[in-house]
């Protein structure tokens, strides 16, 4: 709505109209959905459908349902966490490329692990080696999730970093961001070493799976900061 008003304002013959337009753009409502609130989220995967009880199914019959997103599908190989991770690797809206890069990284993880598996002759030691890249990815993300985070609280003119508990979705977000960031460090190095982003992501996933590496270090550092600022913890609820 406000967007339409803005566009109209642009059509008027005002002085500095573009400056006005730009300054007023903040008024645009963000995250505006084309679907009214009575629309419910879609069920796109057979596994989700199996979990529903008959009552829930009956209820859904008479509801308006949003269409699934372009990257949500009914494949047996679909993984919702991986779907989210693709968005963090993506640059400039090129989602197909991001997905391809992650697939490459998974393949590299698998190549390393499978070779290790086949070279190991002892059956008991073989069982310990994780070879499923998706399992490694889940474990790595789980290991990278922080428990505490700091939030700025202004008190008496001083901004304190106050430790707070992290909700799960934010912990996952931080884990994704750190994984991608630590793989992206020194990115143009490719021309020297021939090492691609997917190579470093694969290495980072394997490291994080063993609780090692740069990403885990970032998590530990955040935890250390929280530990150091333990004294301010009560600022979270006192005024």
């Amino acid at each position: 709505m406000s967007f339409i008003i803005l566009r109209r304002a642009l059509q008027l013959n005002l002085p500095h109209k573009h400056a006005i337009y730009n300054s007023l753009r903040v008024l645009q409502i963000k995250n505006y959905s084309v679907y009214p609130p009575n629309y419910v989220e879609p069920i796109y995967h057979p596994d989700q459908l199996k979990k529903l009880s008959s009552d829930e199914r009956k209820e859904l019959l008479h509801k308006n349902i949003k269409p699934p997103l372009q990257n949500q599908n009914a494949s047996v190989f679909f993984d919702p966490i991986l779907r989210k991770f693709v968005n963090h690797v993506m640059k400039g809206g090129n989602k197909a490329m991001a997905r391809q890069i992650i697939e490459e990284a998974f393949e590299k993880v698998k190549r390393i692990q499978i070779r290790k598996f086949h070279l190991e002759k002892d059956v008991k030691k073989q069982e310990v080696i994780l070879t499923n890249p998706l399992e490694i990815f889940h474990k790595a993300v789980e290991n990278c999730k922080p428990v505490l985070d700091v939030t700025p609280v202004k008190k008496g003119g001083v901004v304190y970093k106050v430790p707070v508990a992290v909700p799960d979705h934010k912990a996952q977000f931080l884990a994704f961001r750190w994984l991608v960031d630590s793989s992206r460090e020194h990115e143009p190095r490719r021309s020297h070493t021939g090492e691609y982003f997917s190579d470093r992501l694969a290495k980072e996933l394997l490291d994080a799976c063993d609780n090692l590496g740069k990403t885990i270090k970032k998590k530990v550092e955040l935890h250390k900061l929280c530990e150091a600022n333990k004294a301010y913890a009560h600022y979270r609820w006192t005024k």
């Binding site: 494949s75 047996v76 190989f77 698998k110 499978i114 598996f117 086949h118 070879t131 499923n132 890249p133 998706l134 399992e135």
Partner: peptide, 18 residues
């Protein structure tokens, strides 16, 4: 057998069909 297919669903009937 060579573990090139690792996904648990890849070993099921549906996965192979896909």
């Amino acid at each position: 057998d060579r573990r090139w297919i690792q996904h648990p669903s890849g070993k099921t009937k549906e996965g192979i069909a896909e």
